[in-house]
Design a protein around this nucleic acid. Sequence first.
RNA 1: AGAUCCGUAGCUCAGCCUGGUUAGAGCACUACACUGAUAAUGUAGGGGUCAGCAGUUCAAAUCUGCUCGGGUCUACCA
Length: 1151
Amino acid sequence: MSVKYREFSQLNLPSIEQEILAKWDAEQAFEKSIEVREGAEPFVFYEGPPSANGMPGIHHVISRTLKDLVCRYKTMKGFKVSRKGGWDTHGLPIELGVEKELGITKEDIGVKISVEEYNRKCREAVLRYKDKWDDITKKMGYWVDLNDPYITFKNEYIETLWWLLKQLYNKGLLYQSVSIQPYSPAAGTGLSSHELNQPGTYKDVKDTSAVAMFKAVKNERSQFLFDAAKSEEVFFLAWTTTPWTLPSNLGLTVGPNIDYVLVKTFNPYSGKPCAVVLAKALLHKYFPEHLDEFEEGGSLYEAINNWFNHDSDEFLIGNSAELKVAFDAQIKKKQLPYKIVASFKGTDIEECRYEQLMAYEANKETGGDSFRVITGDFVTTEDGTGIVHTAPAFGADDYKVGKKFGIGILTMVDREGKFVDGLGEFSNRYVKNYKDDPNYEDVNVDISVKLKKENRAFKVEKYEHSYPHCWRTDKPVLYYPLDAWFIKTTEIKDRMVELNKTINWKPKSTGEGRFGNWLENMVDWNLSRSRFWGTPLPVWRTEDGSEEICIGTIEELKAEAEKADKALGTNNARLTGNDLDLHKPYVDEYVLVSNSGKPMKRVPDLIDVWFDSGAMPYAQWGLDYEKVKKGEKYPFKLPAGVEKFEDLYPASFICEGVDQTRGWFYTLHSIASLVYDSVAYKTVVSNGLVLDKAGNKMSKRLGNVVDPFETIGKFGADATRWYLITNASPWDNLKFDIEGIKEVQRKFFGTLYNTYQFFALYANVDGFHFAEPDIPLEERPEIDRWILSSLHTLVKDVNAAMDDYEPTQAGRLIEEFVDEHLSNWYVRLCRRRFWKGEYEQDKISAYQTLYECIETVVRLMAPVSPFFSDAVFRNLNEATKHFDSQSVHHVDFPVANEAYIDKALEERMQLAQDASSLVLSLRKKVNIKVRQPLQKVMIPVLSASMKEQFMKVEDIIKSEVNVKEIEYLTPDNSFIKKKIKPNFVALGKKLGPKMKAVSAALAQFTQEQINQFEKETVYNLLIDNETVPLYLTDVEILSEDVPGWMVTNKGAVTVALDVTITPELLNEGNAREIVNRIQKIRKESGFELTDRIAVEVSDNETLSPSITQFKSYICAEILADDLDLVPGLSNGTDVEVNDITIKINVSKKGG
RNA sequence: AGAUCCGUAGCUCAGCCUGGUUAGAGCACUACACUGAUAAUGUAGGGGUCAGCAGUUCAAAUCUGCUCGGGUCUACCA
């Protein structure tokens, strides 16, 4: 039984992957990877459902690679990792897609197309690209169960959502209220934040803004203002960019800790004296810092100053025509004379009252205790006056603060965007030009003019700001109170913050910053959506809203439906058959009956699709009626082989793009917190975006989208995955560049491939099958022990990185090992061991060592690059049967054996590498090729342990750089020149400020001083007339030079090379050259590695002595039985050795 | 506007948490070498105001603050 290691014909990752894919299919490798862990501790993974109505992009490949590699890793670590796929099927993008396809808009639904038909189209559209998704999933090697995915539009799924909603309803956490939402009067519909975030919706527009004057009512609370002003009129200044909201004004909000001032001044339009309140910080927005041309001591100055201090509003200037002219000029220049007469905090004017600014018939009744000064944290002093005009109907902040203080609500604008009746001259006018009326006159201007005339405007100007517009009509949006259903997340905000602290966020900052911050500023979750294709809210109500029911299951719906049929004679029965559908329009046809016998209809709302996905931990399994009836905590179906829901919940790990922070991550977290007082996931990885190579976001519009099918087809999933993972941390944005994949393919996979091919080539020749028992570590040569030590260090580090969800680090470590250690040092130095000599201990040790390295590496990289690792693993394992497993994905992840790790050994190999590299660079400098042997290298060693370290790797250095001997120069040797420099870390702490002087003094040390220091181990340095004792640990002494030799150094390693070529050395060099030429001929002639040859060489006076002297060496190297010098040899190949041309004739023996 | 990440060689990234005096890799470029791993490999070279400014310190790419630039999310608010 001699199974050979399969050799690859070439490194073609895509074709290797196809082969492996076929095997996985045939062997059911994925299913088996879960089976082999049956009974093991579960590692719970949740798949964030993608929406299959768009094509998969390369950015999907990165997050799915992360998901996959963690799951594969955990599987190899012995966990049972079930992976149920899922599809997100509701939501606006799907509706928009269908509308685009049909060429219709929302208005057409119910007119040109029935809701039924529309929803049927949506249902068809949602899985349009499912095939493509399945295909990319398979091709990229993402192991997830696609046979039984959860689909959010299915009745079972929706039913579970209903059940969850009912839990919230029963806890009193689901309520209806008004909310201030973006609303497009032109389109007559509310807009979602998604719609508001469409490109181009925010436009810079110039609006008429006004600072209005709200007249304070004199009472106990405000008395101090009137006293300070010595006036009968005091005004609060408040700014608005939407004057049309002024008739709906009900309050003025100030910042509790903001400083305000009361200023005595004049109205800039009427010139009338007045006293106004505004934030101190914004004073100079309205009043000049210097009153130029308002001379001190002038008569106008006197008059106004007099007025400032006067205790009545009587206008002093009016008596003098001359002063009046000067005053008018002053006002016209907007150089308002003013005087601060009081300073106070926002809290000091809280609860002051003011007169309604624009009182009409329609806004008489306000439904609250209106026209008060209230406080809110959202007030800033960046703009306006620091006093916020508050119209609760038209701003989310306004609404919130208004509700808190009970100031009522007025909605003086109807849904078409025009003022209601009863607002005098403004009644029925559009607040913006919603109808494209060419004669539209801006009502905001008219309001401002009116305020000016009434002495109630302090400043009116055009103000440019960015304002949202409806993406469909291009008309400005307004914020408008609409009925909506909410989940009272704010009630458990503190608990959610607390639970969040137990979640392991990668990276940490997203959890603490972005997510933590979001939780801190949480508002109630607005569930309502006015759409057609989505999960309906399961609440039925009587017409007057006095009675309602929340339905939790299909059974409950059926029972209620039947009850209604009996009580009201309705025909619900037609809906409850087998084709029952919980979507619109069917669900809206149910009429249920209230306790008092009244009919109830479903409220029109659909729910936020984020609830769909956030509920997937529960809804993916569906409800188990038995458990529902028993009132179990987790009444969900369980898949085969799972005993309890706790084995499926919460997730050990989830992973999505960082854009899901306030999406899926949030909704999972809130539903789990609300319903189960639990986290939904213990670890969450949020990956960054994939940008194009210039750092731009990929978008269809820019045409810089990378097609994952093409990339994977061309370079392979493994190279793509490896590139995505190792190039940047998952949470950093990735600049995707095809060149990077090519590099990974060439450098990493190419090297590993070469290493394997090399191994297979010789192992097949020697018939190595790992049949022999493991050679004990201590019997293996130094270099074997070294690579094994490095390997186990690697295993340890990779385990640590993977456990910490740092696959980038893990991948980079593996790369470095394969390139630097395994290929570039171990294999290169050990090549001869594989093709020279008999099949005995040293050779077997080499095979065993290299085998272990390759096998371990492929197991380490299997999570990231599942295909190639499996291909190599299979090739190895088929020959050795090391593991009783077909696939690398069914075996355990390597565990480091500490006994193999020898840090001193790794260190000295580093010394050997450094020393070799230095000698090679010296050879290069003097142009002596490595094949030419040299006599001696001298290495200064600064300590006994350093010498010992070097001696252990001496042979390696000698053969690597082709020198005969190494001589060590000890510190007492006067031959080397030393250099001393401070040990900054140690000395810095000790000396502090004297550091600089000591450093300078050390630089001046002579060889004698250094030697003296070394001998006495202490040196008293005189710095600034102060003795500073230095010890050897305070400094570093390095050898710098060996006079008369070729010297170079790197760090602590210095080498000196004897470059003399003696005739003996030259002969040996020549012999090696000849070996080299003959090997070349062998190869060109296409001989087998094992073929024996006979060689004839033309006699030459320079080279023949070399050949004669090293004949046996040459013969051994080239597998020659005969080597003859033939004078005047005529046939054979011309070969040049050190500028001499000779002829060589090589013939195969026995052939 | 707020939060957050990022800014180091032409490009992609280490180093920063824990401050220490020649700031590293790979790619690309240039030159040379090697040729029984060969669609490989080695050696050498050029290439850096560590985004900028200020501070802390004997010492700052590293710690602090601010500014600028880029990305993302949230908001758009009088």
